[in-house]
Design a protein around this nucleic acid. Sequence first.
DNA 1: AGAAAAGTGGAAGCGGTATTCCGTTTACCT
DNA 2: AGGTAAACGGAATACCGCTTCCACTTTTCT
Lengths: 187, 187
Amino acid sequence: MNVSIGTEEVQRPLRADARRNRERVLKAARAVFSAQGREAHLEDVASRAKVGVGTVYRHFPTKDALLEALAREQFEILTRWSLEAEAVPDPWAAFEAMIWRGAELQASDRALMEAVAEFKPSVARQAEELHASTERLLRRAQAAGAVRADATGEDVQLMMCGLGSVMQMSGDGWRRYLTVMLDGLRA
Amino acid sequence: MNVSIGTEEVQRPLRADARRNRERVLKAARAVFSAQGREAHLEDVASRAKVGVGTVYRHFPTKDALLEALAREQFEILTRWSLEAEAVPDPWAAFEAMIWRGAELQASDRALMEAVAEFKPSVARQAEELHASTERLLRRAQAAGAVRADATGEDVQLMMCGLGSVMQMSGDGWRRYLTVMLDGLRA
DNA sequence: AGAAAAGTGGAAGCGGTATTCCGTTTACCT
DNA sequence: AGGTAAACGGAATACCGCTTCCACTTTTCT
């Protein structure tokens, strides 16, 4: 029996069916929101997970909380990639490859592209570590003379943000957009 | 007494108070939507115009219709500017100045920046003439060797679209964004 | 001035989506 | 096996913004 210790609650482990359902919900939510964006209905997520809406709410207090959990997963992937890129020898190649990889991930997940394009404070917090890493990537490329000296980390964020909304309106025009933008960033 | 002629309805002129109210509504709507974007409530527009919501609906059948009327006004201004720019001798200067001017207008009107960033079909129709003109501006700059040969009119649209969402998240970071983008477009 | 037509205000209605509630079911523990 | 707490489902609820409706006011016309 778990009891409270001071102000801390020791977490009793989830019941087996609850753990299973939590995974089903997450999996369904990934599919639904990445295809339809944040406007998709929780009912669709629930029915795809073969679960009632009440169950979704048992695991995530609000729709936004669920969306945030999904966004966090994606930002963690991006952060991992960015840290890997820091280990690539050629500074420009590392920077450019990271940007393209991130763009492809955005292109594959509508909820992510919306999260990046709107960039609310909650999203900003999740992206902090990612930004720190991409900024190092940028600085290193600048030090190597590959990127214009006046570019900043914020410019990269804004580029990705604009990319999010460009993707929403054009099938794959975003690739040209990104090409132009990267050319503009080059020294 | 006005009567129908064939399928055409001859428009009886608006009563004096109606004409006055229509202007008040438009003026209030410009102020409210340019400051708060399309999410603003019609109630706010009505109260700022010192009018009931019913009156707003008498003049514009839906909120979208009102928003569309406002967007049209702005696109007409942009189109006029673009046509003027076509008369400027230096092709690159004309193109660049037009883009900056358009960007400043967007920056001053949140509803416009959202309209451009989302770019629904109804907006696209309104922007056709504008696009035709900016495309001529682009082609002329390409012919003069000032813009990269592979750029297209769509690239310009996408640039302005991305700009719309960049503006929504950064105070004036959009100026650097646009600088970088224009450098990327240069030959 | 009086009648008819046009216009008005804002409360009520409607539609649609996120969230809650609670009777029922399932897993866990002894 | 039986008791108990956790989890479930999904109908009902809460909420919120757009739009409609109509009794009342203002303008226009003769």
